[in-house]
Design a protein around this nucleic acid. Structure first.
Lengths: 208, 208
DNA sequence: CTGCTGACTAAGCGCTTGCTCAGCATGCTG
DNA sequence: CAGCATGCTGAGCAAGCGCTTAGTCAGCAG
């Protein structure tokens, strides 16, 4: 199985070019390993070996195993927020923007499912300070979705009883994709995105 | 925080009465701990201490830490499948049955969120033989939902482009509840269930 | 009383973990 | 050439892990 280059999943990774290639390899190995086995079941030897180095080399590039997780989680959340913001601020009415948001949010969680798993399911392993940063980003994402639903409801495009619950449902659908999507699927990330976009618009009562 | 008695979450736990009280306490402590920290971050000392015993006592009642996880996961999956089957086989048309299924599936994942987390997010830690059992149960659940959607589509009650994708979305919404629901929420599990039932029917194109 | 059983504990074994450190090769600078 | 910084390795430490073992003790049959 060839893995998608990290750069594809993560165009916004800060300092991706400046970073030494070895540090980049470690990051990619950590993503793969954390996603497959979870943070606590992954050993520093796993990560280092997968990156083709001795265990000690990890500590030249990162302060600790937890620092690796923090970097992955923060960059992954930042990328997701950017994606959501761009879609929400794009052209068209609320329904059109919501469709694009869901399409891209869903497709990202399918395409970058390894990063997505770390981002969504390894929060509890984050050090406290890194968690605080990430929690703020998650709140921003949820607020962005809520605001768009509210705009759609105000414009009469959406019919929703509870904005918070609807926003939860929309983000839930996308997040959970990173749990079940395998890549063996016949559905491409983009196809899945389009279908989920359709389902969400109906869910929100947009007559489509 | 008082925790819900296991019996409430788990009416179908086999041999719950015959089981010695100490074994029951260990099971409950394991659920709580696995849900909060994950299987690998939980130590046998954590579980035993929470159950008010020494670490060695655990091995009188269970073969291993993994055996505890296997028992929780299998019983939890069995309970979920029963719940889904009962709703799908109940009275009324496809839409009515689907509404009840989603209401109960969702409410269960909110109410029994600790068990739900172990069931849905600790699969990778299961021993191979236990995983095989559980995977079969998961397949049954998905099939049950797919069959109900298909019945609704055949009856003209639902309008769905892809049954598989729709079924994924329906189960996804419920499963993900166990990730984010905290109990601090103002929404009770039953309220959330009703709202999700409404959203799902619209998603499936049932004119409601 | 004796003899036995089953639930439990204190102590700790063998191993793995995250992480450190002295030392080595390489390549740049003067 | 020497001098030095950089990136890395081999060996290994302290701590913590799952699990075992030897033994304690209450309860009960005879």
């Amino acid at each position: 199985m060839t893995s998608t280059p990290l750069a594809d999943l993560w165009p916004t990774l800060p300092g991706a070019d400046a970073r030494p290639e070895a540090a980049y390899r470690l990051l990619q190995a950590a993503v793969e390993s954390f996603a497959e086995r979870g943070f606590h079941a992954t050993t520093t030897r796993d990560i280092a070996t997968a990156a083709g180095m001795s265990p000690a080399a990890l500590y030249i590039h990162y302060q600790s195993k937890a620092a690796l997780l923090a970097e992955i989680s923060q960059a992954g959340h930042a990328a997701t927020l950017t994606l959501v913001r761009d879609a929400a601020a794009g052209p068209g009415g609320p329904a059109e923007r919501m469709r694009r948001l869901v399409e891209q949010f869903t497709a990202w969680h399918a395409r970058a499912r390894t990063v997505g798993r770390v981002v969504n399911y390894e929060l509890h392993a984050l050090p406290e300070d890194a968690y605080a940063v990430v929690a703020a980003l998650r709140l921003d994402i949820e607020r962005e979705v809520s605001a768009l639903i509210e705009a759609g409801a105000a414009a009469g495009d959406f019919q929703v009883a509870e904005v918070r619950t609807a926003a939860r449902a929309v983000t839930s659908l996308g997040i959970d994709v990173s749990r079940w999507y395998t890549g063996n699927s016949t559905e491409t990330p983009e196809e899945l995105g389009r279908r989920y976009g359709e389902l969400v618009l109906r869910m929100l009562g947009a007559g489509v």
